[in-house]
Amino acid sequence: MDVKYYLRERFFPHMWCAGCGHGIVLNALVRAVDGLGIKKRDMVMVSGIGCSSRISGYVDFHSLHTLHGRALAFATGVKLSKPSLNVIVPMGDGDALAIGGNHFIHAARRNINITALVMNNRTYGMTGGQFSPLSGVGTKATTAPYSNIDREFDTVELATGAGATFVARTTVYHVKQLQSLLKKAISHNGFSVLEVLSQCPTYFGRKNRKGSAVDMLNSFKDGTVPVGSKKKQDNPELIERGVFVDKILPEYCEAYAELVERATAK
C-alpha cells in the first residue's frame, strides 16, 4: 500500500524524536484506515495538545487541532452534526486522563460513536518530561526527581467503569495487533477506547534509565501478555493486552435522532 496517499508529505520528516512510539501509531493508523477501505473525506481526526496530538496534522483527513484535553468535546460536536463521519480522537496520557479526564469519562458514559486513542508514554513529552497520571509510583520525572508518589490510573479499568462499550489495550511493539485493534475500534458502533503503550526515549526513558527506543520496545514485549494468560496469575506485574470490553448498547447519535423524531412527530 502507498502510505503517502494518507499523509501530508509537506510536514515530513515529522517533529517526533528519533525512536518515538507515536510514529508507529501513525504508521499503524493509516494501514488500518486503508484496510477498512474508508475514504479520506469520511475520516476526521480531532486532537488536543501534546506530542501525540500532532498526529492529526500529519494525516490527510479532515482535522481539528483544539484545546488541551478538550478534543473529545469538539469531537462530540463534529459527530453529532454529521454522524456519518468516522471520528478519531488521538490523545496523550495527560491530555486524555488529567486535563481531559472529565471529558473522557462523560464521552464514555454517553456511548457516542467516537474512537479515543490513548497514546500512553507515561510522561508529558512536549513540555519537558513532567510526570503524568499514568507515570506510576516510583518513576522519575523532571517534576519528581526523588521519584513519584502518585498512584496511576488503569486506563482500561477507568474506561470500563465509565461505560465505554469497546475497551482494548496494546503496545507499539505489537504492530499487527495494533492494526487489528485499530480496525475493530474504528468499526465499533459506540465509544471505543484503545490504549497504546508507546515509548518516550527522550524523557521517560532517559529519566528512568530504560535505555534506547529499542530497549523500551523490548520491554513492551517482555512486560505484556495476552488477556487471560496464565503468566499473569504467576506475575501480577505483567500488563494484559487485547480486548477487554466489546458490547453493543444504544449509541448517542442514534438515540438523539430518535428523540428528534419523537419530539417533531405530530
Binding site: 502510505v3 499523509l7 515530513f12 517526533w16 510514529g23 501513525l26 504508521n27 499503524a28 504492530v175
Partner: peptide
C-alpha cells in the same frame, strides 16, 4: 515488519 514498525514511515 520494518515497513510497518518504522516510526518515521521511511521504509517501503
Amino acid at each position: 515488519l520494518c515497513e510497518q514498525i518504522c516510526p518515521d514511515l521511511a521504509i517501503e
